[in-house]
Design a protein around this nucleic acid. Structure first.
Lengths: 203, 203
DNA sequence: GCGCTAACGAAACCACAGTTCCCTTAGCGG
DNA sequence: CCGCTAAGGGAACTGTGGTTTCGTTAGCGC
């Protein structure tokens, strides 16, 4: 996935780092639609030919940026209780989306995914990994007897994030910490009620 | 908000209808980023000057399209139970997002909202209205004693849609009817547990 | 019906995002 | 340390999305 695999040491890697940094800056300033690769090249102090040759399109560049973002993963929490873990997850997502740089970046990659198939695949892989990282929280809760057996762990994690992204992209309502907590509590309540059990297991 | 308010009868209205129709078609075919106003003009059999003069930008056109979509509102359900109403809402949203034309249209207006301030305002208004339309379901449930008093009705409705939009835009997971039902059930369970009460009311 | 003007439209025009050409630089292997 | 080649870069070029100009059409009021 990563562009420029040969000659990883030295210039190639330096150029990639500079360009991705510049792309992030430009994205935060102008947004996905007004991203100009020549502008990115200028910011990165790199020839625009290079940017066009290695990444080709705005979507391609954003896809690589996403691959780069995927490498820096924050570890999941382990507070001992389901609600504690879910709250930690919700607050992490909340902080990320509210942060002006990160929020803009996430909006950009999500937009890129609606325009470009490769970007969409990269995005879906990204979230599949993130969800799989946090799923153990739910599995532990099942083992502890906090949740009914057969609970779909991924579904619970998705339920925590969904309201935050919904507000970011769709409704535009504010995304504060109280909101994040409510989101975690709602997911926990639904999971307790057995809504996310895969093998139709009533409460 | 609607463009071309003067001389509403006759040509102006006809042109608007033709252009919005053409814009929808083009949007479904190419997506927001590859929308060319000259192409829209050609499809609508209208001078491209007209499209540029009246709408100016892609985002402007999509904003007007959204205003047009806002006018055609489907009535909310009234099944007599909270879960019945929420399920009806979830299934309505699910069908809309899965429909190839409507789904593409919604993706497009959401993308437009991330690029353009006016489009964002229009989108947020659109969903504020939709949510307000369905909120009475929850209020009735509170009155019936199905839910704790002080439940934030809008929050419950948002909770129903959020997982569907999350899948559409973020995770890329499938959006089927079973998923919609689960979403409705999760929102109902959380509401029952008092997660959405505004005046900190424990269960 | 008749004229006034808002709105439409054809065509020439312009700017700049993206491409091409060809030369230069620098990393790695021996 | 030297040469081979992958990668970078400057500058000229091009195609198309968007603008401007100015003449035409059609809706509304009288």
């Amino acid at each position: 996935m990563t562009v420029g695999a040969t000659r990883p040491g030295g210039r190639t890697a330096r150029v990639r780092a500079a360009v991705l940094k510049a792309a992030g800056d430009a994205l935060v300033e102008h947004g996905f639609d007004r991203l100009d690769l020549a502008d990115v090249a200028r910011r990165a102090e790199v020839g625009k030919t290079t940017v066009y040759r290695r990444w080709g399109t705005v979507a391609g560049l954003v896809t690589d940026l996403l691959a780069d973002m995927a490498e820096q993963s924050l570890p999941r929490a382990d507070t001992g209780t389901l609600i504690g873990d879910l709250r930690a997850n919700a607050r992490l997502v909340q902080r990320t989306l509210v942060d002006s740089r990160q929020g803009a970046l996430f909006r950009a990659v999500i937009v890129a995914a609606t325009c470009d198939l490769r970007a969409a695949e990269a995005l879906h892989r990204f979230y599949a990994v993130r969800i799989a990282e946090w799923a153990p929280c739910v599995e532990q809760a099942v083992r502890r007897g906090e949740l009914p057996p057969g609970t779909d762990a991924a579904e619970v994690i998705r339920a925590v994030s969904a309201p935050l992204y919904y507000r970011l992209l769709v409704s535009g309502d504010p995304i504060d910490e109280a909101m994040a907590d409510r989101s975690a509590e709602a997911a926990a309540a639904a999971a307790h009620a057995g809504v996310f059990t895969q093998t139709s297991c009533p409460d």
